[in-house]
Every structure is written in structure tokens, then in C-alpha cells.
Simulated assay, not measured.
Amino acid sequence: MHICLSDGWGGLEMYPARIIPELQRQGWEAHGLALAGSRVAESLAAAGCEPLTVVSRGRALLQVGRVLAYLKRHGIDVLHCHKSSDLRLGALLVTLQPRLKLFYTDHMGVTRPKKDLYHRWAYGRVTRLFAISEATRRRNLKAFPLPAARIHRLYLGIDLAPYAPQLDRASRELLRRELDVAPDQVAIGLPGRLTDGKGHEVWLEGLARLRERAPGLAWHGVLIGGLTASEGSDEAYVAQLRKRVAALGLEGRVTFAGYRPDLPRLFEALDIVCVPSRNEAFGLTVVEAMAAGKAVVGADSGAIPELLEADCGRLAAPEEPQAWAEAMAELGQDAALRRRLGQAARCRAERHFAVAAHVRALTEEYAGA
């Protein structure tokens, strides 16, 4: 049973529904526990796993008997939590039913020590803690009251198939026009939630400097991500970005594309994908862009350098707009280089970040291998 009692919507919340179809393909019976009416609950149902629901996190603790009865009825002996706050319920279930095995994925990257009495009790019930990168594993080892043997790195995985090119030339050009990209322009995209910490402002400053660094290069910037709170973005921050675009004289040079469910197709419309996040715990967008065969410029911080090797992309300091301008100029002016990096990126994604391999490693842990 995957437990995710979150009313938000981001990579953490998407994870259970992302892997459940592959769990089922590999012969596992998957269940979920989610908040009633949440997008997590909707995504689980859409993935073929109608979840058990509760109205709130507090109510879940009060209904622990109901949850235990559900686990017994379905013969469930593996629990997997995805938010640290959900470990209260997971640890309580294990305390009441010691046969259960409890797993926890630290999707966010812990930022402070968790070694007080409560955390020693909760994490003491965890069979295995998964760090999603080496960068987060190093922080986990310092922060959590667990021996190193119980903290394993497990890179996330994605279904690679949707990211293979599907559009013919005419369809691709139509999509580019929809994004305000002219036929002769290099499309430079930044996909992801529009919230502070994702590096949008340094990227915009980099685009402004790109005009000076490569005055002969025709380009257009595309920001891909929800524009409202209901789509996971910070509306005040979106307004701040619009003002910054105007202040930098980039109006007409940058499109706010909004939330797009067809992200794999949008990658086909882009020539360069930028991920300037300052401290990514993993960097799922980087892997998605690699799977799409795109040349990527990523921030030289957090876990991104683990994913993006020199032969399949470029790294730039997350606080240095000039470094972003230089990287975008290099790739923007060399189509052959973009193709070569993109092909190498796709091969690396196939070798290391396929969801099938991720789930096999995960279920080996579930089974106690």
C-alpha cells in the first residue's frame, strides 16, 4: 500500500500513480491510501488502483483500526510512505501490527536533523529509507536516526515510451507556432512548477544576456508550467516573473505556455531544455528531457550533476546568468551538437532511468532480497 496523504500536486504526489502500472505489470497487487477528493486519489484511480480514502491526516490516525482491517482483508504486508508527516500513521500501523514492513522515500531532501524522541520512534519502525540521489543520501545519513545500511539510494524512473518522438514535421511546426516560436528560431524551454527556487529569474536574466552574447541567434523562450495555485504554482511569483520579463525587455521573446498535460510532445517542439533549479533532490524534468532526446542545460547543484554527464548536456552555476547565457549560446548556435547531446542523453536515460528497472529494484527491497 502506497500512503500519500497530501493535498498538493508535484513530483512526490505523482510518484505512486507513476509506478503502480509497472508494479502491476510485474505481478504485484498495489493499493493506495489518500485524502478523499485529492489529486493523489484521482491519479491512483486513473492508474487502476481505487484507493482507500480518509478526509484528513488526523482522521487517518483516528481510523487506524479501519486501515488495519483493510490491510488484513487484502493481505497487505508492505507499506510505502512518501511524506514525512505520513510516517506517523505508518509507524503506528507497524507498532500495532509488527508483521508489516514500512518503507519511506525521501522525495524532498531533508534539510534539518530529525533525531529527537519522536523521530527516533517513527524512523525506528522504517525497514528501508530510499534516497533518490547520492546528494540526498549524504544528507539523509547525517539527518536521520538510522544506520547507513537502512538508507539506500534508489534513482527514480520514468516510462520512456511517451517521450519517443511522435510528431511529423508539420505537426511539430504547428505546435511551435502555438508556442509563438517562429520556424527559424531556436526554442529554449524551461518546464516545471512556477515557484521560487526553480531558477526562473536567473534563466530570464540569462536570456537577456544571450542577446548580447549571440546577437545573430534567433531564439524564443518558453516557460512551461501552471499559472495558478490550483495548477501547483505560486500566483504571486508568476506575477513577479511577468514583471521581470517586461523589465528585461523580453516581452515578445518569452511565452508563458501554462500547464500542459502533453509535456512529451512539447519537448518535441523545443531545441534546448533548461533546468536551473538551485537544489533539486533528483531532477525528474532533467530525466524527462533526456528521454525526449533533448540537449539539456542543468544547474550545477543538488542532484542534477549526477544525472547529466558531460556527453549528454551542459551544467551552469545556478546563480550566474552569464554562465546560462554562455551555455545557451553554445547549444543554440550548433544544431549538430544539440543532436549529438540529445542522442547520448536518450541512451543514458534508457540505461539508468527506466521505470521498469526502478520498480524491479524497489520490489527486491519489498521482498527483502
Rank of each mutant, 00 (worst) to 15 (best):
H2R: 01
G8W: 00
G8S: 14
W9Y: 09
M14R: 15
P16I: 02
I20P: 02
E22W: 03
E22N: 04
L23Q: 14
Q26D: 06
P51G: 10
P51V: 09
T53E: 07
A60N: 07
L62D: 05
L68F: 03
Y70I: 01
L71H: 03
K72I: 00
H80K: 06
S85A: 13
G90W: 11
A91F: 06
A91I: 04
L93S: 00
L93M: 11
Q97T: 13
R99N: 04
F103N: 03
T105Y: 10
H107C: 09
D116I: 08
D116N: 15
H119G: 02
R128E: 08
L129C: 10
N140C: 14
L141E: 13
L141N: 04
A143I: 05
L146T: 09
P147A: 11
A149Y: 06
I151A: 07
I158G: 11
L160D: 02
P162I: 06
P162N: 05
P165E: 07
E173L: 15
L175C: 05
L179T: 06
P191S: 10
P191I: 08
G192M: 09
L194R: 06
E201T: 12
E205H: 12
L210F: 09
L227Q: 15
D234C: 10
G249T: 05
E251Q: 14
E251T: 15
V254T: 08
Y259K: 13
R260D: 11
L266F: 13
F267Y: 15
I272H: 01
I272K: 04
C274T: 15
C274R: 05
S277V: 06
A281Y: 01
F282K: 03
V286K: 00
V296S: 05
A299R: 02
D300Y: 08
G302W: 05
I304R: 04
P305L: 08
E306L: 11
L308K: 04
L308T: 07
R314K: 12
E320Y: 09
Q322C: 08
M328C: 14
E330Q: 15
A335S: 15
L337V: 14
A344V: 09
R348E: 11
F353T: 10
F353I: 11
A354L: 01
A356P: 00
A356G: 11
A357G: 13
Y366K: 03
G368Y: 10
